[in-house]
Amino acid sequence: MFGFFSSLDCSLDIFFVEALLNGVLLAGLLALLALGLNLVFGVIDVVWICYAELVMIGMYAIFFFVQTVGLPLPLAFLLAIGLVAIAGLLLHYLVIRPVLDQPPINQLLVTGGLLFLLQAAATMAFGIEFRNLGLRLGSMNIGDMSFSWSRIITFAVAIAAVVALWQFLTRTYIGTAIRAISQDRQIMPLMGVDQKKVYLATSAIGGGLAGLAACLMVLQYDIYPQIGLQFGPLTFMICVLGGLGNMVGGFVAAFIIAQFITIGGSCVATEWGYAVAFLFFMLVIFVRPQGLFGAKS
C-alpha cells in the first residue's frame, strides 16, 4: 500500500542515512497532520477521530478539480484547502456543538460515526479504485542517495505552515485567545471573547490544515477511501506522544515517530516500521502518560 520504501538493506550505511533523511522528510508531513488535530483538541477539548478522513476528502477534491473539471493544479489546491476548511467549520457547527456537554466518549464516537460516513461518501462518489494525479516530480540525487522532490516540497511547505501558524497564534488577538481558552474557558467572556466564534475559527483553521495536508499528500500517495485509516491512528499517536493539545510537542513527536517508520520500514517491512512505532509509543506513555512534552497535571 505504501510504495515509499523499496526493500532496502540495513547493512548498507548509505541506505541507513538515506532512510534517516527520508524520515526527516516524512516528519514534516506528520507534523502538519498532528498540528491541526492538536489545535482543535487544545481549544475545543474534542478529538476529531475523523481528522484523516477530512484529509481524504481534500485529496479527492483535488483529484476531482484537476481530472474532472480540468482546473490548473494550484487553483485546485486553493479550492481544496477552502473546501476542507468549510468542512471543518460545518463539522463543528453541526456535529460537535450539539455534543459539547456530553461525556468525552460520545464526542469521540460522534466523529467516529462521521469517519464511516465520509469513507462511504468517498466510495460512493469515486469508487474503491486507487486514484492519482499522475504527477511525476522526479527526484534529487546526492551521491548514491535519492530523495523525491515531492517529499522535499512537502517537507518545506509543512514547515512553512507550522511557522505561519505559530506567527498567527502569537501575533494576533484571536490567536492569543486560542492559546488562552483551554486555560480558563469560563472567564473568556470577561475578556470580551465570544467562545463560539473562537471555536468556529479554530475548526476552520484545523480543517484548512487538513486541506493543506491533502495538497501535499496527493503529490506522494494514491487516493483511496481507506487512506484515512492509514494516517489517522498515526496522527493520534503523534499528538498523544507530544502531549495532546501541545503543538510544539506534537512537532517533535512527529520527527521521532517518522524515524521509527522509515528506519524500521527500510530494515524489515513497512508494517513493522509502524508496529514498532506504536510499541514505542505505548512504552513511552506508560512512563510519561502526559506525553513526552505534556505538562504534569
Binding site: 460515526g113 469517519l115 469513507q119
Partner: peptide, 13 residues
C-alpha cells in the same frame, strides 16, 4: 455498495 455504510454512519451521528 457504500450507501448502507453511509446511512449507518449518519444514523450513528
Amino acid at each position: 455498495l457504500a450507501l448502507d455504510t453511509f446511512i449507518y454512519g449518519l444514523l450513528l451521528v
